[in-house]
């Protein structure tokens, strides 16, 4: 059925005991798309993933894969029949089996003669050729992750699900593997949903990001849209660092201590969203807002400052690493962006 989305989720609710984990989730994923479920812990993203795999049943709503309903009311298709691949956070490699046996685990329907070839092919894909006879405990974290991936991909599933795929790995490894994984997934053209709480991962890897807050999808869209035009403060916080500066808005313009800007948002007293990269130390001669540095973090490539400016506390400001600014100094903060901004009504918005 062309035109049918690879994954379709409608009005899903799920509770565990008295806790409501998902409160009405809708999502459509097109074939070949990589979508991230991004949110803080407890927002229900892993539960949604498990619902897609068939490891949980929804209380209400429907799940369809490739146009076919796999969960709705009385209908429920068991996980082994969904043709979905899943990589767990702990990789869940079978400790008694070799790498090769692990990867071949899901190939029961394949004729025996074809299995070695498939295993070899998929191991090559993940760059683990030659490791077939090793045991999981002999591998490093990154290697285990790749084997787990290979195992999930070997049966050529229609959808690939990943639960926090990089959380168990160290930072340097993460970025490299992320790019490799992205390349691999696009090459395979396989529809992928992955769960993460790491905004870099979501923004870097996904075609679209679904931001989940409190059991619902608050916003879904391409990374740029979600990052630059978040629909609420909560979404903004999930996707990146947030600086809120008081301002007054009228029409499509807002006036703040840092100047006047174009953008979108409600009228009246508002709080304007500035990302850290939108703020910087004023150049000599520039007019800006006076601020006191409360902390400085040297990061090699740049330095991060926390400043208190007027009523706003702990604004995150970037500056050059070489700049000799220390905690306690008074600086002038200037805006460093010309793109449209977003602002929200003043007062607590969750």
């Amino acid at each position: 059925m062309s035109g049918a989305s690879a994954i379709q989720v409608q009005a899903i609710t799920k509770s565990f005991g008295s806790t409501r984990v998902l409160g009405g989730v809708d999502l459509e994923v097109s074939g070949g798309e990589i979508i991230a479920l991004l949110g803080p812990s407890g927002c229900g993203k892993t539960t949604l993933l498990r619902l897609l795999a068939g490891l949980e049943r929804p209380d209400e709503g429907r799940v369809a894969l490739d146009g076919a309903v796999v969960a709705e009311g009385g209908t429920f298709v068991a996980p082994e029949r969904r043709g979905v691949g899943l990589v767990f956070q702990d990789y869940a490699l079978f400790p008694q089996r070799t790498v090769g046996d692990n990867v071949a685990f899901g190939l029961r329907r394949l004729p025996k003669s074809e299995r070695p070839a498939r295993v070899a092919a998929v191991l090559e894909r993940v760059d683990m050729t030659g490791y077939g006879d090793r045991y999981p405990h002999e591998l490093s974290g990154g290697q285990q992750q790749r084997v787990a991936l290979a195992r999930a991909l070997a049966p050529k599933p229609g959808v690939l699900l990943l639960d926090e795929p990089f959380s168990n790995l160290d930072a340097g490894l993460r970025r490299r593997l992320r790019m490799q994984l992205g390349a691999l997934l696009r090459d395979l053209g396989i529809t992928t949903v992955f769960v993460t709480h790491d905004q870099d991962e979501a923004l870097g890897l996904a075609d679209r990001v679904a931001v989940m807050v409190g059991g619902v999808i608050a916003q879904v869209g391409p990374p740029g849209e979600v990052y630059e035009r978040p629909m609420s403060e909560a979404v903004a916080r999930v996707v990146g660092e947030v600086n809120l500066i008081a301002g007054s808005a009228r029409g499509g313009t807002v006036t703040t201590a840092l100047g006047t800007f174009q953008g979108a948002g409600p009228e009246g007293a508002v709080e304007v969203l500035f990302r850290p990269e939108h703020l910087g130390v004023c150049a000599p001669g520039e007019e800006g807002a006076r601020a006191i540095v409360s902390a400085r973090e040297y990061l090699g490539r740049e330095a991060h400052l926390l400043v208190d400016c007027g009523e706003s506390r702990d604004l995150a400001v970037r500056c050059e690493a070489a700049a000799e600014i220390a905690a306690g100094d008074t600086i002038a903060v200037c805006s460093r962006t010309s793109s449209p901004l977003v602002w929200f009504a003043a007062g607590r918005v969750e």
Binding site: G54, L55, R82, L86, F88, F94, Q96, F105, G106
Partner: peptide, 26 residues
């Protein structure tokens, strides 16, 4: 861990088979 059997489920094993292939050896 439950994830062992759940992996087996997503890899095509029914509940009983998943138990025998994934958990039983341990």
């Amino acid at each position: 861990p439950a994830s062992l059997e759940e992996s087996a489920r997503t890899l095509g094993d029914g509940p009983v088979r998943a138990f025998f292939r994934a958990s039983a050896p341990l």
